[in-house]
């Protein structure tokens, strides 16, 4: 038993993350279904639901957009993909360099060189995608503005 833990302790992290994600799903489900239930009650009584209740149905993306364009945020909100691509390139590139160094010169197993190659290819591909997007991508913004978001 102890040996098993020694060999696989790091699995706690991915498995823990998965359990957390499952809890998040259930929590969100609970919140959404409660909100919808209340909305139904309002509708059955022929009353207008409060705006705050309708706002609870927003997705995280819409919420982030609303915050960014509000007086508190005051910056241009970019959709998910565009926001993270440069960070991903840097992260994958750094991992490639680190693993490559350890695999080639640090006396690590060959598997680290293979990992470095994989991360390097990922960083390169993401870089090409980001460059294409920056050069030819449409400049659309305010994707989530609608009557509600105002």
């Amino acid at each position: 038993m102890e040996e098993l833990f020694r060999s696989y302790w790091w699995l706690i992290f991915p498995v823990g993350w998965m359990i957390a994600a499952a809890f998040e799903s259930f929590g969100r489900y609970h919140q959404r279904s409660g909100t919808l239930k209340l909305l139904k009650t309002y509708a059955e009584q022929g009353k207008e639901p409060p705006q705050a209740l309708l706002d609870m149905l927003k997705s995280d993306e819409q919420r982030a957009y609303d915050y960014a364009s509000s007086a508190y945020g005051g910056y241009d909100y970019k959709p998910h993909g565009a926001r993270h691509s440069w960070w991903q390139i840097v992260t994958f590139g750094a991992l490639a360099v680190g693993f490559g160094y350890y695999g080639q010169y640090g006396g690590g197993h060959e598997i680290f060189t293979a990992l470095a190659l994989a991360f390097g290819v990922a960083a390169l591909s993401l870089g090409v995608i980001a460059a294409i997007r920056a050069l030819f991508g449409s400049k659309r913004q305010n994707t989530y503005s609608d009557k509600d978001a105002e």
């Binding site: 959404r32 919808l36 909305l39 139904k40 022929g46 149905l57 927003k58 997705s59 509600d148």
Partner: peptide, 26 residues
């Protein structure tokens, strides 16, 4: 499914469906 049910309640009663219900909510 629940969202569609609420929309149906609104329509059955002849009320306007709020915009917040018209888009995907999850």
């Amino acid at each position: 499914r629940k969202r569609l049910e609420v929309i149906k309640t609104y329509i059955d009663r002849g009320m306007d469906v709020p915009d917040a219900l018209k888009r995907e909510t999850f």
